[in-house]
Design a protein around this nucleic acid. Structure first.
Lengths: 364, 364
DNA sequence: TATTAGCACTCGTAAAGAGAGAGTGCCAAT
DNA sequence: ATTGGCACTCTCTCTTTACGAGTGCTAATA
């Protein structure tokens, strides 16, 4: 059944007011603020109906109304006015992003902390990289006992590793190994690197010292690693500022849940489409039990490297959906633009050259 | 003035009991548990003296006693018996560390989360790398528009960066650049790389495209980066399980403090010696106001690369100093052994070869 | 028929009071 | 020096009371 126009207005007013105040909303408040020309008694009748329809509920008999998850859902889908961020807010987001993205290190966690700062809710940031292959190997000869492996992945990610040998090898051996590897282990996914292939390569390289096996295990390692999704939560402490988490039990439960990155992996559900739309999961719509009283808003962006990143925030069901969604959407599209494949390049140190990123290896 | 033997015993009993129960300790409890052969009345007299001496205080006139920071300090310095961890606990620490250190990535933050798990307090992990220089450069030619810079630092850290050029250069140019760099920018600290030196190198390399400047800025960048200390806090949510943080205000204040990594940098004070001793900062001994009601226990370890790492935990002044200190000490020495310069090498994938680490670079 | 005013009723919360219990401080006895 | 005893203090909890916000219902009104 479709709601009457007035019911919609009232529902909207309840949600808006409850989002603002965190207190049950009474009929009188609505009569005064919502500006529909009728008395509180009329509102009361309507409210009673909205309760029986399942959009609102009363914490106890003589309190005001608060929205149910169904009510929020209706609000999010149909009622709320898509917020246009003020120029200041847009400016703030852009400048924060620009600042942080200049140093491209720790990208994912940084993005999370930006989102958290901008929304004032705990934020989560995930990256779900696509399976990748190695495009080319280079071995840098350092001395008779040491060389560096540099591998360039399909997404143009570069990884390196320092290898010490207890035996001496000549520069020629390194060279030969390098070509063997480029011949055998490029453009294959991790599961294709079987002991059989390694054996074959060993023969080809005339390798008696197990060098091939080591480099192969390195290859497997970085390919596996590239598929492990990273996840971060930033600003969990912000929960404690919210009235719904005045109870330390609740705060503890949710924060502990968020602290375990295992839980986050499965969060945004399977159909995380690549549309840049913002998704809202309200209360019980979340699969995780710990989130049944909370809402999650996520947006995804093109992170380059064939990967999509996800940023989101977690908060009480009483969340400023409109504003948060708008902000996340803006952040996501800004990120897509800066990081994504087709977009404009990030501002470089030098406009003649584009430097792509930094990686490091701690040796001893 | 030196405390009498009995006063020491009583003070110890108060601290032990208060650490256990988080409730003010009464004379009767001590008479029963501490097993010195005297009545509660005697204890009361002694307690009263300990209060005037500043070791104990009463929350209110008719409550039991709780230790003051001075009392805790006395306890930590002289009274507490250095805890010997049980075999199970030692085993747990070793196995947890072994597990995590196998994948050597994200080392520092992982160490923090291990420490947090093992102590059940929020843990912080910092790395304070020493200033380093670049030992050698390698430029890997990919195609006419692309190359990878690989730089090996004094601590054998390897960093890399993918550079795209909007102009084509030949392999010979790359080669020449490489030798120019190895001639001019190795074994110097960051502040030595002045525009003057860059200008000189540009002339030497016959560089008209600003390539030298770019690589130089890369050099500056990684050297700067190598000096930026990383810091992580793990398990902040554990605070909420402690009775002293039942009040959300307090929890919020401390967690927000910990969430800001800026604050952590200065934490362990200036004289962070390299002795492997565990340091305890009790309540007001902390410089930061937010920590005036809390205690911090830190240990440092040799992280290889000429760097020392710091792990520590934060908790209420009522902390199990003895056990936490023992655990941190064990963790620190285990880490020193595995990561440190002189120690035994970490378990490799292959006992013939030692692989040193992984780094990565995300390109697009 | 929809709206409104009025009023009794409900329920949660804050303030106030009573009682219990734990623990102290002190005194007199040992 | 130590101890038992006892009055006193203070907090914590439970109950009571009062209040107020908000409702639901009914009867009057447009």
């Amino acid at each position: 059944m479709e709601l009457s126009e007035r019911k919609k207005k009232i529902l909207t007013a309840v949600v808006d007011e409850y989002i603002r105040s965190a207190e049950p909303v009474g009929s009188k408040t609505i009569a005064e603020t919502a500006g529909l020309g009728c008395s509180s008694a009329t509102i009361r009748n309507e409210l009673a109906e909205l309760v029986t329809l399942g959009y609102l509920e009363q914490p106890h008999t003589s309190a005001g109304r608060i929205p149910t998850p169904v009510g929020y859902r209706m609000y999010v889908n149909e009622l709320m006015q898509r917020q246009r961020l003020s120029i200041e807010e847009t400016e703030e987001i852009n400048s924060k992003l620009g600042e942080r993205l200049r140093q491209l290190d720790h990208l994912i966690s940084d993005i999370g902390s930006i989102a958290s700062q901008l929304t004032n809710y705990p934020a989560l940031a995930l990256a779900a990289p696509a399976p990748s292959t190695i495009k080319r190997f280079d071995l840098i000869y350092i001395d008779a006992n040491t060389f560096i492996i540099v591998a360039m992945l399909s997404g143009n990610t570069v990884k390196n590793k320092l290898v010490h040998l207890p035996v001496s090898v000549g520069q020629d051996v390194i060279q030969r190994l390098s070509s063997v590897f480029n011949a055998n282990f490029t453009n294959v996914t991790e599961d294709k690197i079987s002991p059989l292939v390694i054996r074959a390569a060993e023969r080809a390289a005339d390798d008696t010292m197990g060098l091939v096996a080591v480099i192969a295990s390195f290859a497997i390692e970085i390919l596996t690693e590239a598929q492990v999704s990273e996840s971060y939560v930033s600003g969990a402490n912000r929960l404690l500022g919210l009235p719904e988490f005045r109870d330390p039990e609740k705060a503890h439960a949710l924060m502990s849940f968020l602290a375990d990155s295992e839980h986050l992996r499965g969060l945004p559900g399977p159909n995380m489409g690549d549309e840049s739309e913002v998704r809202v999961l309200i209360g019980p719509e979340n699969v995780a039990d710990e989130l049944r009283d909370s809402s999650v808003i996520v947006a995804s962006y093109d992170a380059g490297d064939n990967t999509r990143g996800i940023i989101g925030v977690v908060g009480p069901t009483r969340m400023d959906y409109s504003k948060v969604a708008a902000k996340l959407s803006l952040i996501a599209s800004a990120l897509s633009q800066r990081l994504g494949g087709g977009g404009t390049p990030p501002p470089g140190l030098n406009n003649k050259l584009i430097i792509k990123d930094i990686g490091d290896t701690h040796g001893q």
